[in-house]
Nucleic acid binder design. Sequence first.
DNA 1: ACCTATAAATAAAG
DNA 2: CTTTATTTATAGGT
Lengths: 187, 187
Amino acid sequence: MMIGMKKTSMGRQKIDIKKIENQEARRQVCFSKRRTGLFKKASDLSILCGAEISIIVFSPAGKAFSFGHPSVESVLNRYIEAATNRGGVTNGNRGSLLDNGHGLSREYTNLAAMLEEERRKKAALEESDGGRGSGWMDLVNINIEQLGLQELQQLKKKMEDLRNSLLLTESRAPSASAMSTTQYDNM
Amino acid sequence: MMIGMKKTSMGRQKIDIKKIENQEARRQVCFSKRRTGLFKKASDLSILCGAEISIIVFSPAGKAFSFGHPSVESVLNRYIEAATNRGGVTNGNRGSLLDNGHGLSREYTNLAAMLEEERRKKAALEESDGGRGSGWMDLVNINIEQLGLQELQQLKKKMEDLRNSLLLTESRAPSASAMSTTQYDNM
DNA sequence: ACCTATAAATAAAG
DNA sequence: CTTTATTTATAGGT
């Protein structure tokens, strides 16, 4: 830089890592730039080290963006599988459902409680249906309290398989990295 | 820096973004450093902009690491919900199952096909069971081909709800950011 | 794990 | 979107 030349920019300023509030524009710009940077870093990491990565981001406005290598779905599948095979994950997040480190009886309790809760939800749902339902759903209505641990585990696996086939089916030809800017309607 | 002082480091070197091979140690170090950096960037973004973020990373060795704000599970739930409500997502990834942009009849076809496949899987599973099963699973055995679109959609939703309650239940008290280094056994 | 020199990301402004 | 000045991330070495 030449001596005596006036600065034409104040350059990058240091900012505190705390929520940007009451500056809609500044926050939006920051989000866009940093989301781009984050996805770039993820891409670099996956290429350099051959790591599999999935990132999902919701903007403050509620738009969803995602990055995945080889794909979001394949990584989520692998994660869910790993968690399932382990019987749970311990990831440091407070309130994580997939809470590991319990014995079988505890797992049984949790499973039964969860299914019980689901049964309540379903009942409420069908009630709100105003009795218009054809009743076919009752076919899935198992008397959960009667089931043993092994059966609960089988049901769990079955539901996981079903969910996988419905939502998270293995992706095909996932050899390259992919970036995406999926946008749902603002929610 | 003092004049005449010898450089004690060659500083950061420029590297190409291509897979590091045949240098196990270098790749491992790179992975650790960059994973840390990636999670830091994600944390900064979530704090600065109030964004919700979930990151799942599998190391080349197969270890899983995750970051989530407010939690991995809550963001995955929101993502799956958003995809479900839309009837699918369009995320640029090749082979994505949640492929949107089709009419209802096409969705029906896909759903029926998926459930059909699931039926086959289940049959195979029960066969490998050697007939030891108590048969309770048949209660869930619906004649899928007979169902209409609306019923398939209800079944889909039901299965999603069940899966959510089994694996991705809403996390409690997820007000703060969380970093985690979940480790499964190498796979 | 820690250090240093340099590459890369990015805040503010145009 | 582009430029610029500065902060931040990190490759290689110890």
